[in-house]
Every structure is written in C-alpha cells, then in structure tokens.
C-alpha cells in the first residue's frame, strides 16, 4: 500500500512544496517531510523545520562542502564536485539493508538553484538559520510569515591569503556591520603593533584573529583566514549543535581556540557510534576520513577547522592510496 499520496499539494500552511528528481520536499507549521521512491511505494522522512533549514543553509553557503552533509541520520547530500548526490537512507544501514534507501545525482547548479528556492520560501521573517537558537527564537515555526532573504544571502568569505591585506577579504568591525557577539563581550579587541620600514608598509601584516572571530555573526560556518598553498585555516564560532552530521571525504583537523565542544563520532557508511571527543581550549584532534561528526557547543566557542583543499585527495582516499588516519604512531 502506498501511504504517500502520488500528488503532493502545491502549498501547505502557505509554504510551497518542491520536487527534485525522485525527491519531494514539503513543509508545514513545524516539520519538513521528504519522500523518495522505494520498491513499489514512497518512503517518507520527517525532520523539524528549523533543523532542516539550518542544514540546508550550510549546503547553500558551502556549495555542498567537502564530502557528506547529513541533515540527520537518514537524509543528506554528498558532494561529487560538479555534481551532487541527494540520498535518503543511504548512509543508514537499516534503511539501506532493507532496500529503503534512494540515491539520485544532479548537476550542482540545478540542485543549488532548487535548494536556494526552498530556503527563500521556507525561512520566515525573523528566522536566521545561521544564528543560535537563543538569538533567533522560534520564528522558524508556524504558518508562513514573510521571509529573511538578507540572512540567507550571506556567503562563505573567500580569502586568498589573509583578511585585511590589500585586495583580500575585509577585517570585521563596527563600521562594516560586525558587532561583537554577546557571548564574546569579554574578548580583547587590541591590535598587533606593526612597525614597517619605509617601502614595506604593505608587506608586513597581522590582525587580532580572536577579535575577528568575536565579531562573527554566524555559527558553524567556517571561513578562511590564512592560505598556505592547499592548507586552509577556516576558523568559525560555534553555539548549540552543528546543524549537520559531517561525513568526511578527507582528514579534517580541529584546534579548539576557546571554550569547549563535545563531538559525537559515527561511522561514515553505517552511522554506528564510534567515539565521543571532548575538546577544550588548546586541544587538537583529527577527524579521520572514514567518520562522520557532529558537535555540541554549550557556550559560543572559537574553533579552528583546518582543511586540505587538494582536489585530488578524495580519489587518494577512495583508492586506498592513503589511509583514513593522518598519522601512524
């Protein structure tokens, strides 16, 4: 018996419904329901609307990021770099082993266009999917009311070398709309002292990274602050729960700059729990290439996410040329 209607309504509670290939996306006052074809029927899956929109926001902002963006333990996307895979149940061994998983690959521009439309229609006025719950409240819920295009049009800051250099990304300050976040009011705003000899004024450069981070207006959104070839320092500020379970396609490293984050680690392919990692200020840890991770930050914290942007690294892992662990000792 097919419990899911063949035709979904055009709108529910004022929200548009959407289709992408075999997937349907419907939201109501509280929830998002996703369906996909399996065997002779359709499988459905339900998420809280705010959690879905926070995850979708990261897919938009990060261009589907590195590897897998699990919205939860069932639905997500996998970046194939030029194409993107949407999946239901594929990385959940119970769905997959029972024939209830579904995977469909789309050209990235087509998928990106659709998820931007979903985000634009489903984010109500006052709901910022980049903000912590204490900042944005419960505006995600209820019948459709307005929108928040300003919040969702933010993009990942692209830095070529280091913020503040001539022609590079800007530093943050009150003058360009970056106020100090309420949780970092105690972070010093002093600046390095640069004494350049005549002729070298543009070549010596430094800034207060912690002050820069204290003025981040988003959570769980890494942005590059230094580039050494393919080595990218991508610090970010974290509060509440990482809205996705990030499945690595390469080794990623974390250096906790301030406060603490608890990480739940699961197997990337099955979702089985593997470990929990508590990181406090000064701690460094690798996230291996065969795991998925989700962080919990009880107070807004500063985290350095360190990425290797080498485009060949995914194939190196997939072929077994390099192990999923960065160091053997």
């Amino acid at each position: 018996m097919n419990a899911i209607a063949e035709k979904i309504p055009a709108t529910v509670a004022g929200y548009k419904t959407f289709e992408l290939g075999g997937f349907t996306f419907l939201r109501d006052e509280y929830f998002v329901t996703i369906t996909w074809p399996v065997k002779d029927r359709r499988q459905s899956h339900t998420m809280s609307a705010d959690a879905f929109l926070r995850a979708l926001m990261r897919d938009v902002a990060w261009g589907f990021f590195y590897g897998v963006v699990n919205f939860d333990h069932v639905f997500g996307t996998r970046n194939l770099y030029g194409k993107v895979e949407f999946f239901g149940g594929r990385l959940n061994e119970h769905y997959h082993n029972n024939g209830l998983s579904y995977v469909e690959v789309f050209d990235t521009p087509r998928a990106m266009k659709l998820i931007k439309e979903i985000l634009a229609d489903w984010c109500n006025e006052g709901f910022d999917p980049f903000a912590a719950p204490l900042e944005t409240g419960d505006a995600a819920f209820g019948e459709k009311h307005g929108n928040n295009l300003k919040a969702i049009d933010r993009f990942r800051v692209a830095t070529r070398r280091m913020p503040g250099l001539d022609g590079d990304s800007p530093l943050r300050g009150d003058d360009n709309g970056y106020a100090i976040n309420r949780a970092f009011a105690d972070v010093a705003q002093d600046k390095p002292v640069i004494k350049a000899e005549p002729g070298f004024e543009g070549e010596l450069h430094a800034f207060n990274l912690f002050a820069y981070l204290s003025r981040s207006d988003v959570t769980w959104n890494p942005s590059v602050t230094s580039v050494c070839k393919n080595s990218l320092f991508c610090p970010t500020t974290e509060e509440y729960i990482l809205p996705i379970i990030h499945g690595n396609d390469r080794v990623e490293w974390f250096l906790q700059f301030s406060d603490e984050i608890m990480w739940n680690i699961t197997d990337k392919e099955t979702g089985r729990p593997r470990a929990r990692v508590l990181m406090k200020a000064g701690d460094v840890a690798a996230m291996p290439a065969d795991i998925a991770h989700q962080g919990f930050s009880k107070k807004r914290s500063m985290l350095l996410v360190w990425e290797n942007g080498n485009p060949g690294i995914v194939k190196m892992h997939e072929s077994g040329e390099i192990p999923p662990y960065p160091v053997t000792f």
Binding site: V187, L204, A206, S226
Partner: peptide, 16 residues
C-alpha cells in the same frame, strides 16, 4: 637583505 620592520603580537593575534 633590507630590514622590513617588526610586529608585536599579543594573545590571539595572527601574523603573515
């Protein structure tokens, strides 16, 4: 070579 200058870094400061 020529002296370029100096930078004094405090807590949380980053230099190129």
């Amino acid at each position: 070579g020529k002296r370029m200058g100096s930078i004094r870094l405090g807590h949380g400061h980053q230099a190129l």
